[in-house]
Computed example of a mutant assay.
Amino acid sequence: MLASRLASRPARPVPIDPLPYESRLDERPLSAIDLVVIHCTELPDLATARRYGERVLYPAPDAAGGTGNSGHFYIDRDGSVHRYVTPERVAHHTRGYNPRSVGIELVNTGRYPHWLDSRHQAMDEAYAPAQIEALIGLLNSLRAAIPSLTTIAGHEDLDTAEVEASDDPTRKVRRKRDPGPMFPWKRVLDAVPLERLRPL
């Protein structure tokens, strides 16, 4: 199991707190994973992100419950790492890339609470040093545990769709901008053996 391999590495313990619907997410072999996607929660704190992750957005056809949107790992501002979905399950975090990827969410306000308002598109909260150090540690642990994992991308690299602005339907804004301009790509790429994926 991946959990035991990660746990065997010297690092801060990673609490395992599965989302209520984790067992209903599709299973996959770890060898199917070649990509990690970096997100920011665009929410004020980890507790709010957890509540959003627990929301059932995709009802099951057999009435046995549904699933929602979530990353696999969440990293709080203090550097604590939390696992909500095991990588052996397909989480819903990036349209078109979920079956092959692991999603990592960094707690950051982003554009909250006016995500699609054209007047509030700045993403100016810096990522805490402890948060980035924890991310680097997690990425290196995942790379060691999943040899097929070779690439990394930001959500904004993979979902470039534009939508109508909530304040003015004649204007367009990016649907996803995370992890945003404050994310230290050079620092992370210099520290992990992963190549940034930027689709054409």
Rank of each mutant, 00 (worst) to 15 (best):
Y74P: 07
Y74E: 05
I75N: 01
I75T: 02
I75H: 01
D76C: 00
D76E: 11
D76H: 01
R77L: 07
R77N: 03
G79L: 03
R83Q: 15
R83G: 07
V85W: 01
V85M: 02
T86D: 14
T86E: 11
P87N: 02
P87T: 07
H93R: 07
T94Y: 00
T94G: 00
T94R: 02
R95W: 00
R95P: 00
G96E: 06
Y97N: 03
P99Q: 08
P99H: 07
R100K: 09
S101D: 05
S101W: 00
G103M: 00
G103H: 00
G103E: 00
I104K: 04
V107T: 12
V107Y: 03
T109E: 10
T109P: 05
G110A: 04
R111K: 08
P113D: 14
P113C: 08
P113S: 09
H114G: 14
H114P: 03
W115V: 05
L116V: 00
S118A: 14
S118R: 10
R119H: 12
H120F: 13
Q121F: 01
Q121M: 10
A122G: 10
D124L: 06
D124C: 06
A126L: 09
Y127D: 11
Y127G: 08
A128M: 13
A130M: 11
A130W: 11
A130F: 12
A130G: 06
E133F: 07
A134R: 07
A134E: 10
A134L: 07
L135G: 10
L135M: 10
I136P: 14
G137H: 04
L138F: 04
L139G: 15
N140Q: 15
N140S: 10
S141V: 03
L142F: 12
A144G: 14
A145V: 09
I146D: 11
I146W: 01
I146Y: 04
I146P: 13
S148Q: 10
T150P: 02
I152Y: 09
A153V: 07
G154D: 11
G154H: 04
H155T: 15
E156M: 13
D157W: 05
L158T: 14
D159I: 12
T160H: 11
T160G: 08
A161M: 05
V163T: 15
S166C: 11
S166W: 06
S166L: 06
S166R: 06
D167N: 15
D167Q: 10
